[in-house]
Design a binder for these strands. Structure first.
Length: 468
RNA sequence: GGCCCGUUCGUCUAGUGGUUAGGACUCAUGGUUUUCAUCCAUGCAACAGGGGUUCGAUUCCCCUACGGGCUACCA
């Protein structure tokens, strides 16, 4: 088998969203797994809605996710003359024809059949006009579109996910391949471009499933080799509607800002509509590449669940090397750990990493190790630092102040004494102490934290908290 | 309306002509004589409905319902 050539073909009418990222992922995985080529084509032929800035946003997001594409980005708009050439060629050869029905005429006819509850079909008035007859109408100044001359019969193809799909060509109108302004339409150009780019496997959302027969008919009309198709089920929002801007967060960029790593996002996305045929859920990229297979791709749409993403992210976080986590955080937030010793930064992340689910958690918790003094949330301090708690904090301060050995065993014995003194369990002591030390109600082990924070910082914070 | 596709716990999913229908997330409870957003254990929870086929259907077939897609001079 030849090496596959696949492509991701977004239109630059918005940011890269989760659904697009999943489509890109499955294309990329398939290419990587089979030593194939992954191409990127921007479908920017909708002049109204396409924006150049979105192209950058999409390519940035893809790069960030790590989906490096081969060759240069193909801009569909650059192929205009090629598309026109093929249209003309098809008119000449009679596989397509000029249709002189105006949009208004068609709209009226369509409305009439709707009123009569009849099935609307585009009239094939001009289907069999000779080239001479067509020319006469052009000379009269009549506008025209170009339609594909769809033959009778059945169009059948085998989808890697959905299996055999059959459509009676009668169901398909002679659809327009070039508008009256000469611009070609999607179902036409997509076939031409895919063929020109030698795409062997078309992997895309199943919203294209019903368009596939039309595209196959274009391939056939031109005598082109028909690629293999694999349609992916849609990703739905919590309301079971197709993921769109209406939903909370659909933009890949937003997940980056929430502190998810590409690995976590990719891992979670891979689990939407696919399963590894095992119980494994946490994958690194290479594991995913070798496990990926269309046999395990689901046919039904999957609902995006941020809770599970968060869990996957936490799992990935725990598996990440400390040094890698430091790098990730630094690239996410360039201000993080400014003017801090790199060994210290490493120690902080090592301490905090296992309990964090996102890079933002890392940033939030590690911050208390960098700040000189911390601020206390008023409501929380009222709740946590009552009179007796303040007494604990004050007593601890006193005991720590005279402690020379800032080591775990020494700290432990101080807490032991405090426990007897206040007749409380360790847990009860830790709560106010942690809050005094960090302003947080959660975090790493208290002794490790104190050691890393250092004596001076601990003493200052305890006395600050005791004054509240 | 027509055509195409789909329907297993709330969610992601495994699975079989005879199973206690399995796992994961979430949630609940308990544990880890240190909090917890980590970790461990336990628990709650599903085969859309109706007809067939069959000794037996969640599994095969048909219908209905529901969901999604396409049906544009959008992509």
């Amino acid at each position: 088998m030849n090496k596959p050539v696949v492509r991701f073909a977004p239109s630059p009418t918005g940011y890269l969203h989760i659904g697009g990222a999943r489509t890109a992922l499955f294309n990329w995985l398939y290419a990587k797994k089979n030593g194939g080529t992954f191409l990127l084509r921007i479908e920017d032929t909708d002049v109204e809605r396409s924006k150049a800035e979105y192209i950058d946003q999409i390519t940035d997001a893809l790069s960030w996710l790590g989906f490096d594409w081969d060759n240069n980005v193909v801009l569909q708009s650059k192929n205009k003359s090629r598309h026109k050439e093929v249209v003309n060629q098809m008119i000449e050869s009679g596989t397509a024809y000029r249709c002189f029905l105006s949009k208004e005429e068609l709209d009226t006819l369509r409305q009439e059949s709707e009123k009569k509850k009849e099935l609307f079909r585009v009239p094939k008035t001009y289907r069999d006009y000779s080239l001479d007859q067509q020319q006469t109408l052009i000379d009269e100044g009549k506008a025209f579109t170009v339609r594909l001359k769809i033959p009778g019969g059945i169009t059948e193809f085998s989808d890697l996910v959905y299996g055999t799909i059959k459509v009676d060509n009668k169901e398909l109108d002679d659809f327009i391949i070039a508008r009256s302004d000469g611009s070609p339409t999607y179902n036409f150009v997509v076939a031409i471009d895919d063929s020109d780019m030698n795409i062997s496997h078309i992997i895309r959302g199943d919203d294209h499933l019903a368009n596939t027969p039309k595209q196959i008919l274009v391939y056939k009309a031109l005598g082109l080799a028909i690629p293999i198709f694999a349609h992916l089920p849609m990703i739905l929002g919590a309301d079971k509607k197709r993921l769109s801007k209406r939903h909370a967060a659909t933009n890949v960029q937003e997940y980056k800002e929430k502190g998810f790593t590409p690995t976590a996002i990719i891992n979670y996305l891979s689990l939407l509509g696919w399963n590894p045929d095992s119980d494994q859920e946490i994958f690194n990229i290479n594991e995913l590449i070798s496990a990926f297979n269309f046999n395990q791709v689901q046919k039904k749409p999957a609902t995006f669940d941020e809770k599970k993403l968060l869990w996957v992210s936490g799992q990935q976080m725990a598996r990440m090397e400390t040094s890698a986590a430091v790098k990730e955080v630094e690239s996410l937030d360039s201000n993080w750990g400014m003017n801090q010793d790199s060994k210290y930064k490493n120690d902080v992340i090592a301490l905090v990493k296992d309990r964090s689910k996102t890079l933002n958690d890392l940033i939030e918790i590690s911050d208390v190790f960098f700040k000189e003094s911390i601020s206390y949330d008023e409501e929380m301090s009222k709740k946590i630092l009552d009179d007796s708690s303040i007494q604990i904090v004050a007593d601890l301060h006193e005991a720590l102040n005279i402690e020379e050995n800032w080591r775990k065993d020494a700290l432990e014995s101080i807490f032991d004494n405090l426990m007897t003194q206040h007749e409380l369990g360790l847990g009860k002591l830790i709560k106010p102490v942690r809050f005094a030390l960090t302003g947080l109600s959660y975090g790493p082990g208290i002794f490790d934290m104190m050691i890393l924070l250092g004596k001076d910082r601990c003493l200052n914070r305890l006395s600050d908290a005791a004054k509240l």
